[in-house]
Design a protein around this nucleic acid. Sequence first.
DNA 1: CTAAAACCTGACGCTGGCGTCAGAGGCAAG
DNA 2: CTTGCCTCTGACGCCAGCGTCAGGTTTTAG
Lengths: 125, 125
Amino acid sequence: MTVTVAAAERLMRIGEVARGAGVSVRAVRYYEQQGLLIAERSPSGQRLYRQDAIPLVRFFQEMFAAGLTSRRITELLPCWDAGHTDAGQRAMLRAERERIQAKIDDMQAALDHLDEVIAITDTHP
Amino acid sequence: MTVTVAAAERLMRIGEVARGAGVSVRAVRYYEQQGLLIAERSPSGQRLYRQDAIPLVRFFQEMFAAGLTSRRITELLPCWDAGHTDAGQRAMLRAERERIQAKIDDMQAALDHLDEVIAITDTHP
DNA sequence: CTAAAACCTGACGCTGGCGTCAGAGGCAAG
DNA sequence: CTTGCCTCTGACGCCAGCGTCAGGTTTTAG
């Protein structure tokens, strides 16, 4: 007979999450305020995070770097941690994908232009 | 005997520049305020631009999209329209190039991650 | 037990590329 | 002349992701 025991997951406080993900404590609090990262609370009111908080914060950083806002990320979170996803969310995923791709293309064009300038200034000191 | 005559270049007012480059009039004024785009003035004080103002504004837009600030662009302008370039400026060019490349790599990583999520949500409706 | 380190809740500040409103002057056409 | 569009100079507003200070509680190390 097998008994499923709730694995006493080791909970972290906010500082550990921040250091682990390479962001500031302030940033982690901000994510909670924006509804990105929900934390449990200790009896004294301190935030307690599960292990997956760190990769999650890293994911947020990646999305921020890609130009998504925290609001967009909250709207897309259901696609991420649940299998539950409706047509609207899939459409948003695709739309964001296109926006990122377009931005990459723009930046690549800018890079090519800059490389031209560099080539000129190098051969033409 | 050849005589060089200053070609009476057709000058544009700010609206034409803005429409031609696809930005707002406000944006063009802002570029001047930041020292990016110097305009002559008509006797009544209106800004007058040469033809190359339009590609120049487009270039600014491209650099903004790549994450450069107007200050950086002003610092790099001498490399652009003059052959004059010192070692410091060439170093800055390279530094900006690296920053842009790094940002592109980050965004590509984000895009790949998003594509994974999209693949999951598609095969797992 | 005590001091340091970590955490808490507000709340204001900052940056950058403009948008936008206010109030006043230019400029070609009918 | 006047109508209507363009332009001018300030100057304040905005947004997003935090930084940062204030003033207080909690946890931990020695």
